[in-house]
Amino acid sequence: MTGAVTYRLQINGADHAVESSWLGESLLYVLRERLGLVGSKNACEEGECGSCSVLVDGRLVCSCLELAAAAEGTEIITVEGLSPDGTLSDVQEALVAEGGVQCGFCTPGFVVAVHDLLDGNASPSPLETKEALAGNLCRCTGYGRIEAAVERVVELRRG
């Protein structure tokens, strides 16, 4: 890989061409600025806030720390891919219902992280939830409402 590069990315099941991009561009930058997928948010660009969280090959990562060109050949899921038909996912609905969305900037990152948590662990303990969400910062809610939303999804999925 050198200088300006052209490559393809698999995002939310669709194939996207990225042309003449600068080699150092992060996946977050490419998602937002080149592909118009602006759900993933940019706050710190240093892995601290989690607002850019996506899944790469099924793993929760910060898209600001992924070199986009090196993500060719992986399966990328962004927050847009979690509710493809434009409706809210159960996690999004629960966040709204519990007051877990205030300014909303952190919300897409939390949505991806909570989906990832509950896909791997259908009923996490409060401590497991805190640990799983430790890489996502929220300056508004104080986290209690986000944790309540996780509980709500657990209950609803249990049926």
């Binding site: 890989m1 200088g3 992060s26 660009e45 240093e46 720390l65 090196a70 992986t74």
Partner: peptide, 26 residues
């Protein structure tokens, strides 16, 4: 480039400007 968690912070903050990268991902 391995995981990129140190590397990309440097790139994002313009402390590193790669013109060629060898990714160990695969």
């Amino acid at each position: 480039l391995a995981g990129g968690t140190d590397f990309m912070v440097e790139v994002n903050y313009d402390h590193r400007r790669p013109t060629a990268v060898m990714s160990l991902r695969r």
